[in-house]
Design a protein around this nucleic acid. Structure first.
Length: 431
RNA sequence: GGAGAGGUGGCAGAGUGGUCGAAUGCACUCGCUUGGAAAGCGAGCAGAGGUGAUGAGCCUCUCGGGAGUUCGAAUCUCCCCCUCUCCGCCA
């Protein structure tokens, strides 16, 4: 959520950011008007309440309270009626009232873009910053990971469909082992880089989803049991970022760096027909998520660090990849700036997202009330939150299958993973 | 799921209808003291919002959350949530 005070004082900045995102900026004028109406109603309520409180205090001080109360009765009743009326106007217009038009506009307003974000109108205008490990041309036609996986007997899509429907996968034998190795590898590297490992709940409340701004972004894409008020997390960014909701942290604790393994659940309703084959787009996938909580002035350098932390995993896995700065139109709802890590898939000859690293600045912190104090008696300030995958397990597994495939259908295990997997090679099985 | 106890400021812990946003202690900040420190002494120290100049001041709201009674609620009533103890069930 944006700071209403900032919208009031610098509406032009909000309009500019909205335009760059490709959003009609006229909502800013509506926000300004509705906010003015709200504050006027609020002032009315507060003035009447102050008057009434003063009279009540007068009764409290009187020697004969009953008489005092009786005498002030007409005034008090008039004030009560006035308060009730004005309160109704406040309720109807308040940004805290979910049904109010102002709340609706504010909750739909995305974060302000960072100045360094390249302008663009879509995915095509994202900027490649650096490429690492140029893909080597193979001496044979590379197969897609789902064919390799089935041939190896490590990916079973048919049985997954039997169990759970489309967009699920059963990992078998070396595939399951490789996936677990990746998780261990990611978490070990995160620990080495100073991240605290966290094992969070995978079900969270509506409140928690709201805190991290997921309700607008993923509301259609989430698995939910409304009766139990339980949402299956679409990413462990949710529990990790919300970990310190409603807290005031000491400055010397920052930055907080957390790493969590978790399954992630998404309906992907809007993606029907896209990436229907293989591990790329699943209702359930796993990843290790990295989250930072920093002081505002450190968050941009933290984003660079976080991105490098994620990128180093691809380096160690010897997977060809590139780092892309998302352009203004492609950046998500909460982030001010995002770098995507894209890994090479030789079968299709494309780079695909395997990690998305974002600086959400104070956007999530404002909703979740994640604050810190610079000095022991200083005023609390909003912290900045960042998140990035480090990395997505399914896509990493798919990338390994495709990039390390041999002509005979076997797949080499990347050196960095061999001690975790216990073998150097996955070989095809007869079925 | 059942029974009981309880949820107050960073922490501990008073407060059962009238200037209580809240005693006291600890922690913390500043000052005095000291060669320096500790102790001691003095002062300060919750958050959010409105109004002002992103100042001072003033005002409103907040004692787990919500509704209610009352001129007035941390204090009384109702609902919900959470924690602890015991029982049941379970991994």
């Amino acid at each position: 959520m944006l700071d209403i005070v900032l919208i009031r004082r610098d509406p032009e900045r909000v309009r500019r950011s909205a335009k760059r995102r490709g959003i009609d900026p006229s909502f800013v004028d509506d926000v300004l008007r509705l906010d003015a109406e709200y504050r006027s109603a609020l002032t009315d309520v507060e003035r009447a309440k102050a008057e009434k409180n003063a009279l009540s205090a007068q009764i409290g001080r009187a020697a004969d309270k009953a008489t005092a109360a009786r005498e002030l009765r007409p005034k008090l009743d008039a004030l009560s009626a006035e308060i009730a009326g004005a309160e109704e106007r406040v309720r109807a217009s308040a940004p805290e009232t979910p049904q109010s038009r102002l709340a609706e506009l504010l909750t739909q307003t995305p974060n302000l873009l960072d100045e360094s974000v390249p302008d663009g109108t879509g995915e095509a205008e994202n900027v490649v910053l650096r490429t690492s490990g140029e893909p080597e041309p193979l001496a044979f036609a590379p197969k897609p990971h789902y064919e390799i996986g089935e041939r190896l007997g490590v990916l079973d899509f048919e049985r997954a469909t039997k169990l759970s429907g489309s967009r699920f996968t059963v990992l078998m034998g070396g595939g399951a082992r490789l996936a677990r190795a990746l998780v261990d590898f990611f978490l070990d590297r995160a620990a080495r880089s100073g991240y605290v490992e966290v094992a969070p709940p995978f079900l969270v409340t509506r409140q928690t989803m709201w805190w991290t701004g997921q309700l607008s972004k993923f509301s259609d894409a989430m698995f939910v049991d409304p009766e139990a008020d339980a949402f299956m997390i679409p990413t462990s960014e949710v529990p990790l970022t919300a970990l310190h909701a409603n807290e005031i942290l000491a400055a010397d604790r920052l930055p907080l760096k957390y790493a969590a393994y978790s399954p992630c659940f998404r309906k992907e309703a809007g993606a029907a027909g896209k990436d229907t084959r293989g591990l790329i787009r699943q209702h359930q996938f796993e990843k290790v998520e990295l989250v930072w909580v920093t002081a505002p002035e450190r968050s941009m350098e933290a984003l660079e660090r976080l991105t490098l932390d994620a990128q180093s995993l691809l380096e160690e896995l010897e997977l060809p990849h590139r780092v892309v700065a998302l352009c203004s139109a492609d950046i998500g709802f909460s982030p001010a700036k995002t770098y995507d890590l894209e890994v090479w898939f030789p079968a299709q000859g494309v780079y695909r997202e395997i990690s998305s690293c974002s600086n959400c600045t104070d956007f999530q912190a404002r909703r979740a009330h994640i604050r810190f104090r610079r000095e022991p008696n200083a005023k609390p300030e909003l912290a900045h939150t960042l998140n990035g995958s480090g990395l997505a397990v399914g896509r990493a597994l798919a990338a390994i299958l495709e990039n390390f495939q041999e002509a005979d259908g076997s797949v080499r295990v990347p050196r960095a993973l061999r001690s975790y997997v216990g073998t150097e090679k996955l070989t095809p099985v007869e079925r």
